[in-house]
Simulated assay, not measured.
Amino acid sequence: MPSSSRSGDAAAEEPRQRVIEAAADLLAREGRDAVTTRAVAVAAGLQPPAIYRLFGDKDGLLEAVAEYGFVTFLAAKKVDPDPKDPIEDLRAGWDLAVEFGLSHPALYTLMYSEPSSTTTAAYRAGMEVLMGRLRRLAAGGWLRVDEELAAAIIHATARGAVLTWLSLPEDRRDPALLSTLRESMVTAVTHEEPAVQDAGPAGAARALRAALPEQTILSNGEQHLLREWLDRLAHDDAR
């Protein structure tokens, strides 16, 4: 790409980022009602028409600020691809999400009140981090429910913790609320001991094969076919 094109892109992006950061600052200091196109334009050192040119309208600006929130949160995440304790890794991720919400209450509320926010690239990247944690738990036999339900429980408890805490008078904010909700989440989505002793497909296949005679949903033919598949998977790591 020619250097002049890169310079042009940077020049176009710089005022946009300046507006987003000015809006985020107003949001944090004075609340959502203070984020008017005129106030943001003044804070960013631009004329109000520039806001409409860059974002379309105020809703477009707020969506961009919500995306900025997800980007900021994602940058704070420290991802361990192979944690020593996947349950503690889950707790740490939940704590990080709640701490971000409590530290950025207005921004957090905006992030989860704009319907289009959950379609952004930063939100999807954050979800990939969470689903990675859940896949590791599932592969190790720790997960009590399926991954999609586990993700929903984790989000519901974290958001509930943040919004409930913020709704309480300061003298009634008991830290036990947060730790209790976190441990309720852990209990809901994980086993105390791994259901599969050997991580990986072979261990999971052996565990499922052992439980197969206890189920009545499958027909005899389906059980026979599934047992054949499980036998192959269970012995695959011995090859």
Rank of each mutant, 00 (worst) to 15 (best):
V71N: 05
E30R: 15
R32H: 14
A207R: 13
L46V: 14
K77Q: 05
A210V: 01
P48T: 07
E148P: 01
R239F: 04
A12M: 13
E21T: 14
D198H: 12
R239N: 07
A195I: 10
L225R: 05
T37C: 13
A138P: 00
A202S: 15
A64K: 00
A138E: 05
D236P: 03
R159H: 10
G160H: 11
E222F: 08
I153R: 03
T118D: 08
L134W: 08
G126Y: 09
R32E: 15
R182H: 06
T120D: 00
I20H: 00
W229P: 00
L233E: 09
T118M: 09
L218C: 03
E99W: 02
V40Q: 06
T190F: 03
A188K: 02
R239M: 04
A23G: 11
E99V: 06
I153A: 11
K78M: 04
T72G: 05
R227M: 09
T109L: 14
P81D: 12
G221D: 14
D236R: 15
L218H: 11
T36V: 01
A138S: 11
T36P: 13
I20V: 13
F73A: 03
V19L: 00
T119N: 04
L102G: 01
V196H: 12
D237K: 10
P2C: 02
P175W: 08
M1Y: 05
R144W: 02
T36D: 12
W229V: 14
G200V: 08
E214K: 15
P83A: 11
G56V: 05
R6K: 15
A238N: 12
E88C: 01
Q223I: 01
S219T: 15
A64V: 02
P15Q: 02
A139R: 15
P15K: 00
T157N: 03
L130C: 09
Q47C: 01
A66I: 06
W165C: 00
L27Q: 09
A152Q: 11
A150R: 06
L218N: 09
T109Y: 13
A24Q: 06
T119K: 07
S113N: 14
R172M: 02
T157D: 04
A211T: 04
G203Q: 11
T37H: 03
H155F: 15
D174M: 04
E99L: 05
R182S: 06
G126R: 12
A11N: 05
S167H: 04
P105R: 05
V196C: 09
L208M: 13
S219C: 04
F70G: 03
T72A: 12
G60A: 04
A39W: 00
L27D: 08
R53H: 14
R209E: 00
